[in-house]
């Protein structure tokens, strides 16, 4: 595809979405749906706008991380008032030390 050079370098909104930052981190957050109170603290504080409280089919609201973008920073984990988030090491970093 031929490169497009816009007038003055104007860019379209949200075009950063093509940058999948989900592979940056070594850890990822796991939400305990039982403990989550859907308080949205994590949603407001995630630097990468990638954890959102959604309503599940059964009507329960829970925070769901978007691993396509999550950088594993641990902000959500550190602020969850319900202690509902755990950070886990990604499989590929679970190296055996010989």
């Amino acid at each position: 595809m031929v490169m497009k050079i816009t007038l003055g370098g104007v860019s379209k909104p949200h075009s950063s979405k093509t940058m999948k930052t989900g592979d940056w981190g070594t850890e990822y957050p796991v939400v305990d749906e039982e403990k989550c109170t859907a308080c949205k603290t994590c949603e407001y504080l995630c630097p990468d706008a990638c954890i959102v409280v959604v309503e599940k089919e059964d009507g329960k609201k829970v925070a769901v991380p978007d691993y396509d973008y999550c950088k594993g920073c641990g902000v959500c984990f550190s602020v969850c008032p319900a202690g509902a988030i755990k950070m886990e090491l990604k499989e590929i970093y679970k190296l055996e030390v010989c």
Binding site: M3, I5, L7, G8, G9, V10, S11, K12, P13, S15
Partner: peptide, 28 residues
């Protein structure tokens, strides 16, 4: 204006261009 800042079409002005784009802007 062909493009301008408006909330009706929220474009980003004044980008930074990494080396794989900068030269083309100067050609333009």
């Amino acid at each position: 204006p062909p493009v301008y800042m408006t909330t009706k079409n929220p474009l980003t002005f004044g980008c930074y261009a990494p080396p794989n784009y900068y030269a083309e802007f100067r050609v333009v």
